[in-house]
Simulated scan of single mutants.
Amino acid sequence: MDTGTHLLIGATLGGLAISLTDPALISHSTAVYGLFAATIIGSNAPDFDTVIRIRGYKSYLQHHRGFSHSLPMLAGWPLVLAPLIALAFHAWAYLLPIFLWTMAGVMFHVFLDLFNAYGVQCFRPVSRRWFHADIIPIFDPILFSLHAAGLLLWVFDVFGTAAVFPLVYALTFLFIGCRLLIGRFMLQLVRRRYGTAGYSFLIPRGLPHEWKYVHETGQAYITGSIRGLTLKEEAIFEKGEQNDIIQAVMGSDGVRTFLRFTHRVHISCQKLQDGYKVELRDVRFRHGHDLPFGMDVMLDERLQVIGDTIGWRKKMWEPPYA
């Protein structure tokens, strides 16, 4: 999810912590502030790995949502952060609940990231595979609005924590479940149209009745959108034939990093004045007839890799948002 949603959910998770915690503990203001800090920091801790961006986008792509979101770090982040939070808020006596709610924030962060199309390496070190359930967009306006409304109802003292936050989280899990069922239904629509011979998957959009889809055949990636029960085919990206130029880039470190992140790639190549350029594009992130996320690899006339670039070929404010 986006950073704003993680911050908001950290705050509402703090409200849930208060509603479920022993009232005797809540009578201590240090414990209350410590719990809120625990859930907000825990809800954002896995994304602290974004500092790797200073080493370049290739390192960012390789490490972001990797070890920081892994199985060991579900406990690793709370073990590091909880003592610091308890110390900062003079709440050492409440270290255990602060630890547990920090862990809740970390786990819910990874849980939500798992449902995006971007994916997460949440089962490291057991598996380095990227997992993505393709159910919730990076920014979900309904989920954001639900948590924002719950927080505002509490801040303006319309309802207490016990009335607001358990309901907010019950509705959150209900919404995710509905998204999952709708996604499965939409995927069946795609498979009924194109058959089961190829491979089909969805890319969630902002509203539950709107999705993008990709259907892979042996020759092409067929892409389109779904609105309600209507499928609209929008662009076809031919795979083309494998050749010596494309094969020459497959062993480079940059390409291996990119292919670990995405398994559905449209590849093309072109002759330059003094060599070749191979373009690899992730078909999940499409806008119209363009695939703006990918990698360009430059080769000389002897098919030796001489450079590469990786990232987005679009403005930050332009779709798709991932």
Rank of each mutant, 00 (worst) to 15 (best):
G275F: 01
A197Q: 13
G224R: 09
G240M: 04
Y199Q: 12
G42K: 02
D2R: 08
W130C: 05
G311R: 05
H287I: 06
L303C: 04
V249C: 03
Q270S: 13
T161Q: 08
T50N: 09
T39N: 05
M295P: 12
R256D: 11
D308R: 11
H266D: 10
I54F: 08
F115E: 06
Q219F: 13
F201H: 14
D2I: 10
S29Q: 10
F115M: 14
T309G: 03
L259W: 10
D282P: 04
E233Q: 15
T12Q: 06
T50G: 06
F165P: 13
V297E: 01
A37P: 03
R205D: 14
F144P: 14
I52T: 10
G307I: 07
L20E: 15
R281M: 05
P319T: 04
F285A: 03
I138D: 03
L272W: 05
E238Y: 15
T50P: 05
A197Y: 14
H289I: 13
T30E: 15
V283A: 02
F67V: 09
I41R: 00
A37F: 02
H215R: 03
Y221T: 09
K232D: 13
I267V: 13
K239H: 05
V265R: 12
F111A: 01
L207R: 07
F144N: 06
L171P: 02
F201E: 10
V120M: 08
G76R: 00
G183H: 05
L74H: 05
D157A: 14
D274S: 06
V265W: 13
G14T: 08
T12S: 06
